[in-house]
Design a protein around this nucleic acid. Structure first.
Lengths: 216, 216
DNA sequence: CCTGTCAAAAATTTCGAAATTCCGCGCTTT
DNA sequence: AAAGCGCGGAATTTCGAAATTTTTGACAGG
């Protein structure tokens, strides 16, 4: 199979987020080279880019490894995501106009639509990629009017790390899960559109806190 | 001159923070190669690492450039630094023990010491590197007990970006400058040791807000 | 005079191999 | 038997050059 650099990047990212590549697993350019039909140096560069977004770890003279996953790291990632999302949402509520409201509404609508389909089918698997993308899009839209490139970029990276940790730690989504988070997304949306900063911060915190478990 | 990879990294970082390398300037591996007596690929890797911490920008097929600097970017960096430092300080005040208090006191003492020497000499230049390091150390110690690797790492990167922006935008430090920031560092220290979260957040905000100028 | 095309030059990216460094394993020594 | 040493294989890092892509600049056409 022959692919170019951006494809290798996307494919490795996907494998990391699926937890197909397990945490701590060594990522040897010489092995991956075979998967993609390119030179080891090209893989090396892609891995460096994945280090940038926090999905891969690197140590000089010791190579690359899949980012470690455990509950305490997941807690850290989750708390940081709460911080970024609260701040991003608050600033968006200050600065966002009607265009932002429309985009947020649309993103929420798409998310609800997919969740309905999943509940009907009684099986998430065929929709996992779609749902994942819709959820990501809702949360990114929420903070999209914050006016800070740094917050948006950092949040995007943290969101990927969040997914990687979550996919590894919780292998399945329960059925009740969707009911709860559907209500929570609705709360976030309502507070955001009402420009209720405190309420929105509370809703974001509730939505994400479930992932934090002390005494890891 | 022959140096190894970590040295190239440190030297380029230094040149970027000094604003010796001006924003937007193209960083051609083939040129830098001559400065360090290594292959272009080695420089390339170092530049990728500098992208990770935000001092260098990269665009596929178009190479590397020194990170852009302007007032609006500096505003963004500063606001983000305020957010991280407030959160880091608040968590440190919750979790930090007597060891943290001692380290923070020591860091502040060292900073005051250097500032006294600068005021006596009436010239910052010989002490710039020392002062710079002491100031960085104080702010990093402030958040060092926060218990979040993510906050600390992100803050470290943002601090470097802050310096790069500042060194480019404000070429000189006024004399009055030190008087003000000395008082501000004292306020941050006092509030932190008193575990006064709100006061500490206010002090941090005041300390950093001076760098924000609207209507860039 | 402006615009679009095309070839030459320059820069970036990729490559395969050489050089270096690390790691496991058996050996010796105490 | 435990600890230290050194060898051999494997992985990482570096290199110089080839291949690809972008940029430049001149020239023809509108």
């Amino acid at each position: 199979m022959r692919v170019d650099t951006p494809d290798i990047y996307e494919d490795l990212k996907r494998r990391l987020m699926n937890a197909t590549l397990r945490p701590g697993h060594k990522l040897k350019p010489s092995d991956l080279q075979g998967d993609y039909g390119c030179s080891a140096n090209t893989v090396r560069e892609v891995l460096h880019r994945l280090v940038t977004i926090g999905l891969v770890e690197f140590e000089a003279q010791r190579g690359f490894r899949v980012r470690a996953v455990d509950q305490s790291i997941f807690n850290d990632v989750t708390r940081f995501r709460i911080l970024l999302e609260q701040e991003g949402a608050e600033r968006s509520m200050e600065k966002g106009g009607v265009a932002w409201e429309m985009h947020l509404n649309a993103a929420h609508h798409a998310l609800v639509h997919i969740q309905t389909r999943i509940l009907k089918a009684g099986d998430m698997e065929p929709f996992r990629a779609l749902w994942s993308e819709a959820e990501r899009h809702f949360h990114e839209t929420l903070i999209s009017a914050c006016g800070s490139a740094l917050i948006r970029r950092t949040h995007a990276n943290i969101y990927l790390q969040f997914r990687q940790q979550m996919m590894t730690l919780t292998e399945e989504f329960g059925g009740a899960y969707f009911g709860m988070i559907a209500a929570e997304h609705q709360q976030i949306l309502d507070a955001a559109l009402a420009r209720d900063a405190a309420g929105c911060a509370r809703a974001i915190e509730q939505h994400l806190r479930r992932n934090i478990r002390e005494a890891a």
